[in-house]
Design a binder for these strands. Structure first.
Lengths: 118, 118
DNA sequence: TTGCTAAATAGCGATGTAGTAATATCATAA
DNA sequence: TTATGATATTACTACATCGCTATTTAGCAA
């Protein structure tokens, strides 16, 4: 049975692409990585990612705009956390896929059994 | 039990980001959509996507570079097809996620029960 | 109020890439 | 060989956005 292929409007395609695009930057992945297990302050994220404050803040804004993280202010600090579990699913899927591919390449590059010198 | 968070090198993050980035363009999604069920010639893809020949060809090159599609030449025509099933998984995951989010928003916007005018 | 800290925002240069038009390549036919 | 059709490639413009620096805003304390 072939996979189902829905009709997709240009707007729908844009929504889907936007979702992927947000995840298509290493720095944003790094930030999400820092938020993987628990919410963190911006300061902590800056330290964990070794990013500049302005950069991290901008990326956090994008992640929030995309609805992937939420913002909570407490005193001087702002806490961010991942609010859309799709982040976990997508990243795990990609990691597994890359793992499989690289494993396959390793197999191709495996040394042949030794032959005796002529 | 918290989700596992692996240590990721900069190179690994770049690989993952690249994967997402390729899917982060509506035109490439449109092309993959045209290839969803079966391999197609470039000409068919051009017609299905209403894209310009040069543009479609360039995007197909990127998709192949990313290892998501393969190329098969037969006479004058070139057939492309999806070779990495991760495409299906990722797109379905994102679509479901968007579906859920929009459904939730619809609920929030649902009209309240009618009240009698004062 | 002033001062200090955390975070957000604005402005800038550099880079990447989408889309387009023109040209080149490749395979077949005549 | 030349001609034709299907793709790929090149060159170009326009636009988005990354990282960086400087500035601004917001909360708290003295």
């Amino acid at each position: 049975m072939p996979r189902q292929r829905k009709n997709l409007s240009a707007a729908a395609l844009q929504l889907i692409a936007d979702r992927f695009k947000v995840l298509g930057e290493p720095m944003r992945l790094k930030i999400l990585h820092a938020l993987w297990n628990e919410e963190q302050t911006v300061g902590h994220i800056i330290a964990a990612t070794h990013g500049l404050q302005a950069n991290v803040s901008k990326h956090l804004g994008m992640l929030q705009q995309a609805g992937l993280v939420s913002r909570r202010k407490e005193g001087l600090n702002v806490y961010y956390r991942i609010v859309d579990d799709v982040v976990f699913d997508l990243c795990e899927t990609v990691c597994e896929s890359l793992h499989d591919r690289l494993t396959e390449q390793i197999g191709e590059l495996a040394p042949l059994p030794h032959r005796k010198r002529a």
